[in-house]
Design a binder for these strands. Structure first.
Length: 811
RNA sequence: GCGAGAGUGGCGGAACUGGCAGACGCGCGAGACUUAGGAUCUCGUGGGCAACCGUGGGGGUUCAAGUCCCCCCUCUCGCACCA
């Protein structure tokens, strides 16, 4: 049997070498240029690594290996986002402590990552569940609390009376509990909330500083949902009180014909007349029973009832009937609107249904037929006060908006206002497997735990079932629960909520910089050196929440001087979803899941890495193809045979003599292409070029070392095990990772002959093979001869010559 | 409905600022070496007999359009009564 390319032997050999030599450690020498290359760290689930994970991890690994060879000090770490619901649910079912499950899963993930040859600096490994880590998560919470960015509010939770527990959104399917299928209702409970809205403007503004995919930027902007308009006060007609509304269209104020309060609005009771009280009450109760899902149902006919009350339009003193309707949400703006049916689709539909007047105040549409919402080209009409002292008639809406806003402000009836869709962040979970809050309750007041008492360690228990009161399982642990407040020496009860999974992932990139620091979250000198993250790769499912929460915490940490850069992640890329061979999403039920371990057994880690990158553009969604993996395996075998003979020795085709000019050019072109493609994360085309190189060299009976050796280096970030082995076969000491990245000579990337396509009227008619320095005249003369058949002896009207590119006769 | 991205051979996909459409790989076909080939190597492979036709469809700009402009269709992702 011949000694072919044995990926099993080669890969385990070099993995053992890396394990021992640790060549991927980030250096503490802070004088070198740095590159921080980060993956979104995974939740270590029971099912192990997925080929989708591997796509992103391979991409960052190639960049990291490449950057090291370019002389950068590279920080490429990995850790575990290990708190979370699945381990806890498993514990409830089996009684096995989540810490045990988590440790096992981490071991699996780590083993798989090492098998793929990912060049992480494992000395920086961290887990969010480690008290030495979550000590600092708790510390950040104390800072948020100190700055009044963490507060307690009554917030509705998903309460399942049958199960006696609070449920996470993920545990509810179609309004029923996932377990048992019981009803779930909304019930207000005391909750910790983080004031992310205080950072809304900066979170929006600073998106200008980052290089992120447009869709992700857009999603963040929409989530923050900033809109500029005015708040306007409408005085109640027959009672004391004021309804304040938010509107983005104060220019349509003269067109308001009724008002709407959200059913939960506190003024409803004040406004409702005696005769209407009963209907109003019924409507409110129906609305309250509806789930969010039902209330948001599309195409639903709008409903509402008249309250019997009236308010006064501040611009014309008109009496406007006040309605309640569930199309107005208590959670946005002021929970009340002025309705302008002529120029708002929702108000128009509602007015039609309940026969309310529609008054046109912007010309250009037919408001009896449909709402006219354009603001670009048309004019304001019917908008002058009865005494004529104020008018916006004749202006365009965009001119009218500032004018009327200013006027309202002068009259004390309104003000310019900015509104956000972004809500404060509900930060508490009624769970065991999360970070405990460093908070004590003393006489109904929340008191922070002193910093010296951190970490507040999650207490041991074997009962992971919920307490039955809606509190977390921690409420069952009396010995842990009751304590003494160190400040006042009074009896205290610990906070029983834990933090959501997002908490640990909000700042882990900072801890990788200085993972063992026991006195600080991160050393400021190291932080200034390493931050921001230069390249961050992970799934687009985190486009909003994780990335928004992390940016929020980062900005708070920036404000207290822990971080030095305004934004944490400079460049962000989402790897595309890897579909099954059937072009469907991979799922156990479809049976189309590709197991990375099996693929590595069959083809080897290098082939799997290479195929992951060769499938297509990193960001695109694309199907897995085992045939395709075979294809790149053939490529690696060809590379092997380029240098190694059948006895496993250096091939006699490898020579020390100078290469041909063609081979030199091919090499330099390949260096250029691979280098530029890695920089632009176009790994698929980099691999194509290496295939072209290999195909050419396979044909050559003599392969010069001076072209083969640089090629092995180019291949090394992609197929590191094979590259190390070949480097050894070529007679060099390990490791390729210590070699410098090859440099191309621009002079060598241009060839001495050119093919000039000859067109007649833009159609390709001939091709000319000429020396690069052939003059235009000479080319044209040759071209006329070549294209004579098509020119038909006519003199072309025009001859277009693009330098070294093309020649086109126009006849 | 709104927003973002995308539509190229039998398949995955190339084509940097408008300049040879289909690189590279898969699949397929032929040949070579072989007792043998599901190994390896070489050659071929968008359609059409041809003139020609071809980058979702229809217009346009240009000497020249996958690439730029206008209209439309389809798919993916996100948001969805946000006043």
């Amino acid at each position: 049997m011949s000694k072919g390319y044995d990926h099993h032997a080669i890969e385990s050999k070099w993995q053992a070498y890396w394990e021992q030599q640790r060549p991927f450690k980030a250096s503490e020498d802070l004088s070198k240029p740095k590159f921080y290359c980060l993956d979104m760290f995974p939740y270590p689930s029971g099912s192990g690594l997925h080929v989708g994970h591997l796509e992103g991890y391979t991409a960052t690994d190639i960049v990291s290996r490449y950057k090291r060879m370019r002389g950068f000090n590279v920080l490429h770490p990995m850790g575990w986002d290990a708190f979370g619901l699945p381990a806890e649910q498993y514990a409830v079912k089996t009684g096995i402590h989540p810490a045990i499950t988590t440790a096992e899963n981490i071991a699996t993930f780590k083993r798989q990552m090492k098998r793929v040859g990912l060049s992480y600096d494992w000395e920086r490994e961290l887990s969010t569940t480690d008290p030495q880590y979550y000590r600092w998560t708790q510390w950040i919470f104390l800072k948020l609390f100190e700055r009044r960015l963490a507060y307690v509010a009554e917030v509705p939770v998903n309460w399942c009376p049958a199960l006696g527990t609070v449920l996470a959104n993920e545990e509810i399917i179609d309004g029923k509990s996932e377990v048992g299928g019981f009803d779930v209702i909304r019930k207000p409970m005391r909750q910790w909330v983080l004031k992310i809205t205080a950072y809304a403007d900066r979170l929006l503004e600073d998106l200008k500083l980052v290089d992120w995919p447009p869709s992700t930027l857009e999603m963040q902007k929409n989530w923050i949902g900033r809109s500029i308009g005015a708040e306007v006060d409408f005085v109640l007609a027959d009672r004391k009180g004021v309804i304040r509304v938010f509107t983005t269209r104060p220019d349509t104020l003269f067109g308001a014909t009724y008002m709407v309060l959200a059913p939960e609005h506190p003024l409803v009771d004040v406004v409702a007349s005696e005769e209407q009280k009963a209907v109003v009450q019924t409507y409110r109760e129906t609305a309250a029973k509806k789930s969010d899902l039902q209330r948001q149902e599309l195409d639903k006919e709008k409903t509402g009832v008249f309250t019997g009350g009236y308010a006064v339009n501040p611009v014309n003193d008109e009496r406007l009937p006040i309605w309640i309707a569930d199309y107005v949400l208590m959670s946005y703006g002021t929970g009340a609107i002025m309705a302008v049916p002529a120029h708002d689709e929702r108000d128009w539909a509602f007015a039609r249904r309940y026969d309310l007047p529609i008054r046109e105040v912007i010309s250009g549409g037919n408001v009896q037929q449909t709402a006219f919402t354009d603001t670009d080209c048309d004019r304001v009409v019917n908008s002058t006060t009865s005494d004529g002292s104020f008018s916006i008639d004749g202006l365009t809406p965009s001119e009218a908006i500032p004018k009327i806003t200013e006027w309202l402000a002068k009259q004390g009836k309104g003000t310019r206002a900015v509104n956000y869709k972004l809500r404060d962040w509900l930060f508490a979970r009624q769970r065991y497997w999360g970070e405990p809050f460093p908070v004590l309750w003393v006489g109904g007041e929340a008191r922070p735990l002193p910093e010296e008492q951190l970490p507040l360690v999650l207490p041991e228990t074997d009962n992971f079932k919920p307490s039955g009161t809606g509190e977390s399982p921690l409420a069952n642990l009396d010995a842990w629960l009751t304590t003494i407040d160190p400040a006042t020496r009074q009896p205290a009860r610990r906070e029983t909520n834990t933090m959501p999974q997002w908490a640990g992932s909000c700042w882990y990139y900072l801890r990788f910089i200085d993972p063992k620091n026991s006195t600080q979250l991160v050393d400021p000198i190291k932080e200034r050196y390493w931050m921001p993250v230069d390249l961050y790769i992970g799934g687009s499912e985190h486009a909003v929440l994780h990335l928004l929460y992390a940016r929020f915490w980062h900005k708070v940490l920036f404000d207290i001087g822990v971080t030095s850069a305004p934004e944490p992640f400079l460049k962000l890329v989402h790897q595309g979803i890897v579909l099954g061979e059937d072009n469907q999403k991979m799922s156990k039920s479809r049976g189309n899941v590709v197991n990375p371990d099996e693929m590595i057994d069959q083809f080897g880690a290098d082939a799997v890495r290479l195929y992951e990158m060769f499938m297509g553009p990193l960001e695109a969604m694309k199907p897995w193809s085992t045939r395709g993996a075979e294809g790149v395996t053939r490529f690696l075998e060809r590379v092997w045979r380029l240098m190694v003979d059948e006895q496993g020795r250096l091939s006699t085709a490898i020579v020390s003599t100078a290469p041909s000019l063609d081979h030199q050019r091919l090499l330099h072109h390949t260096i250029k292409k691979v280098t530029e493609d890695i920089e632009a994360l176009r790994f698929n085309t980099a691999i194509s070029q290496m295939m072209i190189f290999t195909n050419e060299m396979t044909k050559a009976p003599q392969r010069s070392r001076s072209v083969i050796e640089p090629f092995v280096l180019l291949l090394s970030p992609f197929a590191p095990h094979l590259a190390e082995e070949l480097w050894g076969v070529l007679g060099h000491q390990p490791s390729v990772s210590q070699q410098s990245w090859p440099i191309f000579d621009p002079a060598m990337t241009v060839s001495e002959r050119l093919t000039i396509p000859i067109q007649v009227n833009g159609r390709l008619r001939a091709k000319l093979d000429v020396a690069v320095d052939t003059s235009r005249d000479a080319i044209e003369r040759l071209a006329r001869a070549e294209a004579a058949e098509w020119l038909q002896e006519k003199e072309p009207k025009k001859v277009i010559y693009v330098e070294k590119k093309l020649l086109n006769f126009v006849i």
